[in-house]
């Protein structure tokens, strides 16, 4: 990454961090209902990967997916408006926190049934292959998804059909509240399974945006050349709990401390410093991202609620919901 690219990536990560903090605060104050699964701590995976992709590549994410929507160009305002049930939300307030989608940018959805989107990503990659478009599909998922059948079915199909797809595991060490190692037969829940599907796998520092970018860039290149799928296990950590107001007390203090000292924003800042980017330049980006998110919060708060008729739109492609004559 060039210093300018890294600076842009840093700003995007700050934007995500601040949006997630806002989502948390708005949830605690009752303005966001239902649930949230925050990705603070996972920013480098989304931004590093996205910056290595073409604008027309496809992304499929999970219910912990705010960072992927933002990294693919959704604005903090449309994301927060969605979380706050506003008509201006990304999905017109019909999806919510777990289903952020920005289809115009190839971000084809956030799915809340664990593992379900891996076969979809394989299918989007199959479609790209059939159309000869050169596009690549990337599925992001958590460590918990590696024990569900759809993960294994998707990896096998992708390998057998040599599909241009990347499977990127955000291994944050916990499947919800349980340590992943306690419920998984292998130490590296994603990467250790790749051999079973004759698929190359990388285990990387998911908190270093440059490492993520370079790893994904290589995998994307392989995929575009027709050399098939790659599995990437990016090790990272949640700054918040699993969902809602979970304080994550099940995580040992020394582990939390160790990971908090390896914050993806700090890692990126250190890299920028090493490249000679002046601290004021970095601080400018911090301020710009903060201002964007502050304005997004205000705009989302002031946005209108959806009109009731919206409950009966878009079941079908004709825009309606009619099921009988």
């Amino acid at each position: 990454m060039t210093p300018e690219e890294l600076l842009d990536a840093y700003e995007e990560m700050v934007l995500i961090r601040r949006t997630e903090k806002a989502a948390h605060d708005l949830f605690m104050s009752g303005l966001v209902k239902g649930t949230t699964h925050l990705a603070a701590g996972h920013e480098a995976v989304a931004v590093g990967a996205s910056s290595a992709m073409r604008p027309d590549d496809y992304v499929f994410a999970t219910y912990r997916g705010h960072h992927h929507a933002l990294a693919r160009g959704a604005t903090p305002e449309e994301c927060l408006a969605e979380l706050m049930s506003r008509a201006t939300g990304l999905c017109q307030a019909k999806g919510g926190s777990m289903h952020l989608t920005k289809a115009t940018n190839g971000m084809l959805g956030s799915y809340a049934i664990v593992g379900a989107h891996l076969p979809m990503a394989a299918g989007a990659a199959w479609s790209a292959k059939l159309r000869g478009s050169g596009q690549v599909a990337v599925a992001f998922f958590g460590d918990g998804a590696t024990n569900i059948g759809a993960f294994h079915e998707a990896l096998n199909l992708a390998a057998v059909w040599s599909l241009p797809v990347l499977f990127v595991c955000e291994n944050n060490l916990y499947m919800e509240y349980t340590p992943i190692e306690a419920v998984t037969a292998v130490p590296n829940p994603a990467a250790d399974r790749a051999a079973g599907y004759n698929m190359p796998a990388d285990i990387i520092d998911g908190n270093d945006v440059v490492v993520v970018h370079e790893t994904v860039a290589r995998a994307v290149e392989r995929a575009r050349k027709g050399e098939g799928p790659t599995l990437i296990e990016a090790q990272t950590y949640r700054h918040f709990g699993h969902s809602r107001a979970d304080p994550a007390k099940y995580r040992p203090a020394d582990e939390v401390e160790r990971w908090m000292k390896h914050d993806p924003l700090d890692v990126a800042r250190a890299r920028l410093e090493a490249l000679g980017v002046p601290p004021e330049t970095v601080a400018d980006r911090d301020h710009r991202a903060a201002a964007t998110v502050d304005a997004a919060i205000a705009a989302a708060k002031n946005a209108p609620e959806p009109v009731p008729a919206l409950a009966f739109t878009d079941v079908w492609a004709d825009g309606g919901a009619a099921w009988r004559t």
Binding site: M120, W126, L157
Partner: peptide, 24 residues
């Protein structure tokens, strides 16, 4: 396309393809 015995992969892949310009 012949598939493995993988009903989730079959229908899931069809969905991904349908969302991206094909009629599987």
């Amino acid at each position: 396309w012949d598939t493995p015995i993988s009903e989730q992969a079959i229908v899931g892949a069809a969905m991904g393809a349908a969302m991206t310009g094909m009629r599987p």
